[in-house]
Amino acid sequence: MNITLNGTAHALSDGASVTTLVSQVTGRVLDHSGQASDGGKLGVAVARNSEVVPRSQWAATTLAEGDELELVTAVQGG
């Protein structure tokens, strides 16, 4: 399926969850609660179609064709 991630087209396997996507993009393995399995902080958040998806819901949130995802993190600023 095709989604939009941070404004650009992104291909994902059908039935992929937010966890799958975050793990794929960040290269980190995530546990069921949406935390990094390596024990470090992940430091990212996800909005799906302009709604924030809480970390605890990542695993249960299945993405659909055409979804618009924003994946954000802390950067220098302010």
Partner: peptide
């Protein structure tokens, strides 16, 4: 303070870390 922006895999190092 930090700003929130789109995640970029090309970015080396994490400010949060």
């Amino acid at each position: 303070t930090v700003a929130m922006r789109r995640y970029s895999p090309a970015e080396t190092g994490s400010l949060f870390q």
